[in-house]
Simulated scan of single mutants.
Amino acid sequence: MKKIFKIVLIAIVFVSCKQNIEPTDVVKLNGYWEIEKVDVEDGEDKNYKINEFFDYFEIKDNQGIRKKVKPQLDGTFVVNDTYENVKIRFENDKLYLDYSTDFAKWSEEVITLTDEKLVVKNEENKEYYYKKTGAINLTGNGKTTK
């Protein structure tokens, strides 16, 4: 009986440690995000070692865009005119990203949002783990890209 009580107590501690995302944290979304892995409910997780595309967010006044960008070796990005509209929604102490295009609408719950880490969960309970990234520059003898 004592073991069960300890397990329940530990579980409560872990659940209560969930990050509270505040409205002031939304600006942390802005920038380039590289996907690291996707956790799927049935256990078939997928890890990404190299990514051809990054997600770019530009949010202001709780709305903006997300688009896919392709990093180049010289520190630039290839972009096109395709993007998703994003609206920020707070509901029941949770942050949601509401996406829309001409063809679809969907939402993702933000589980974690820091300066370097983003975790979102979609309606299929898939969790997407991202890390903050920037331009890649493998030219110029190691000079950094501005």
Rank of each mutant, 00 (worst) to 15 (best):
T76P: 00
C17A: 14
D55G: 00
L97G: 02
S100H: 10
D39C: 05
Y129I: 07
V27D: 09
N85C: 03
K87Q: 13
I50V: 10
S107R: 12
Q72H: 07
Y48T: 01
E84F: 08
D25E: 01
Y56L: 11
K87P: 01
K126L: 13
Y99F: 15
Y32L: 14
L118H: 05
K131Y: 11
E123S: 15
F77H: 06
F103H: 12
S16W: 09
F14L: 15
D39R: 13
V69P: 00
A135Q: 14
F14I: 12
T114E: 08
V26S: 01
W33P: 03
P71Y: 13
Y56C: 08
V79H: 07
R89I: 11
E58N: 15
N62F: 12
N125A: 11
I59H: 07
T114Q: 08
K117M: 08
D45S: 14
L29T: 00
G43D: 05
I50Y: 07
Q63S: 12
I59L: 05
W106N: 13
T82G: 05
W33K: 01
V119P: 10
G75I: 07
K60L: 11
A11V: 11
Q19K: 08
T114S: 15
K46W: 08
V40F: 11
E108A: 12
D42K: 13
D115S: 13
F54E: 04
T133H: 07
K105Y: 03
K67H: 00
A104V: 06
K60I: 02
K68M: 12
V69R: 00
V86Q: 06
V120H: 00
I111Y: 09
W106S: 13
A135P: 10
V79T: 15
K131R: 15
I88L: 01
L118D: 02
F103P: 00
D45F: 08
F54K: 06
E91R: 12
D45M: 12
W106T: 08
N20F: 14
V86G: 06
I35H: 03
E22I: 11
W33F: 01
D115F: 03
I59K: 09
D39Q: 12
N92T: 03
K18M: 13
K117V: 15
R89Y: 05
Y129M: 04
N125F: 14
K60P: 00
K132N: 05
F14C: 12
K87H: 10
N47Q: 10
E116G: 09
